[in-house]
């Protein structure tokens, strides 16, 4: 498991920047109609997703969501294959068949983004059952949103995991809205974490824009879960800076609210933390940021020279 040291924080900073630049690029492609379909960007939520993944062991598992770019980059991913997937290329993670909402890399324990809100809750239980049954020592981190916690699958999964003592961290990225609906209109509580009480499991609420807090809390609960104590619910409060998806006029929130959250930029926070605590020089971090930006350009170049999947592939991979 990664320790909270300079090396880890530098890697975290790098992945957060990768996520930010990746999504800025994706947004640029969409604005020009160069990517098909829709996408859900997590700009502003990078600490919440990346730091949580980095507190896991490399071989632990995650289930990701429709807003999953930062999550899967946090788990560790080949940016080239990810960009190629968004551009629908054969070299992409899903051979161009999945797109943004289905990025999966089972080889690093990423069980896939999910187009179905709440779709990951029960899959995480199953993945955790395998770990428990085979005594692998691995755990599962299940990403979901505040809105997803209102799906019936949330209740069924937390209940099952609690009685079977499954090794799952249910990790709610609460960005205060489910599409256009504010949390206050979709649930009668302020903190999703209090729902843990009804399953008799621990619940924690943390500042999801503070990478250090996220890392430390997930590290702590991962140890608890790994010891066989059953699941934990962690709620990470954060905010998405951009619209819900490609088309969103955002009439349901104010510009002031968005601006106030931009002041809590998680990437700047980590930058300042490292500089203030003498863990890195400004120059080093600035240089790293530039490299990250270039990595995304390289990923685009890789995707651009990749082929589209052949038409014959359309009937492949339906069955094993």
């Amino acid at each position: 498991m990664a320790e909270m040291n300079k090396e880890t924080l530098i890697e975290m900073y790098k992945r957060m920047n990768h996520a930010r630049f990746f999504e800025e690029k994706v947004s640029w492609f969409f604005a020009r109609g160069m990517i098909h379909g829709t996408t859900h960007l997590s700009v502003g939520q990078e600490a919440s997703a990346v730091a949580a993944c980095m507190a896991l062991n490399d071989d632990d598992l995650i289930t990701s969501t429709h807003r999953g770019h930062s999550q899967v980059i946090g788990k560790g991913i080949d940016l080239n294959k990810m960009m190629a997937e968004l551009l629908g290329k054969i070299t992409g993670y899903c051979k161009g068949k999945g797109g943004s909402m289905h990025i999966a890399d089972l080889s690093v324990g990423n069980l896939g983004a999910n187009g179905v809100v709440g779709g990951g809750h029960s899959l995480a239980c199953g993945a955790a059952l395998t770990q428990q049954y085979q005594d692998t020592g691995k755990i599962v981190l299940c990403f979901f949103g505040d809105g997803a916690s209102n799906e019936g699958s949330f209740h069924e999964a937390l209940n099952l995991a609690s009685v079977w003592k499954l090794p799952v961290i249910f990790y709610c990225e609460n960005n205060l809205y489910g599409m256009s609906v504010p949390q206050s209109a979709s649930m009668n509580i302020k903190d999703v974490a209090v729902r843990a009480d009804s399953y008799g499991i621990p619940g924690h609420t943390i500042d999801g824009n503070n990478a250090i807090e996220v890392f430390n809390k997930i590290k702590e609960v991962a140890a608890y879960v790994r010891e066989g104590n059953g699941p934990v619910l962690v709620e990470s409060k954060t905010y998405r800076w951009l619209g819900h998806s490609k088309s969103d006029a955002q009439a349901y929130r104010t510009k002031e609210e968005v601006e106030s959250w931009k002041e809590k930029d998680p990437i700047n926070y980590l930058y300042n933390y490292m500089v203030t605590n003498d863990m890195a020089e400004k120059e080093e971090l600035d240089e790293l940021k530039k490299t990250c930006k270039q990595d995304i350009e390289d990923a685009v170049a890789f995707a651009n020279v990749s082929d589209n999947p052949p038409l014959s592939s359309v009937t492949e991979d339906v069955y094993a």
């Binding site: 629908g88 161009g96 068949k97 797109g99 038409l311 359309v314």
Partner: peptide, 16 residues
């Protein structure tokens, strides 16, 4: 429609 899940790539998607 072909008996396949709907693929993402636009050319494949149109072809089914």
């Amino acid at each position: 429609g072909l008996d396949v899940p709907v693929p993402y790539n636009p050319e494949l998607e149109a072809a089914i």
